[in-house]
Amino acid sequence: MPTLTCPVCGGEIEIPDDALPGELFEHEECGAQLELEVDENGNMKLKEAEEISEDWGE
């Protein structure tokens, strides 16, 4: 499992081997919602995900 750095708190976060570009993860230590980016060389890094939006109904 690759270990990446949380861009919010600087802590470590393990990413599953089969993670896809664009997958979302929560860093359980700081609660940040993160998105996996993979460049053309296959290098992975995390960026802050878009803010969770509000939906209505039920």
Binding site: L20, P21, G22, E23, L24, F25, E26, E28, Q33, A49, E50, I52, S53, E54, D55, W56, G57, E58
Partner: peptide, 27 residues
């Protein structure tokens, strides 16, 4: 969002070329 069914749905979106969007419902 780390729960297994949420992760599988995120992957399901990506596999179908849909950007995964997480929402909270007011209802």
């Amino acid at each position: 969002i780390n729960s297994l069914i949420v992760r599988m749905m995120i992957r399901g979106c990506l596999k179908n070329q849909v950007k995964p969007r997480i929402v909270k419902k007011t209802g």
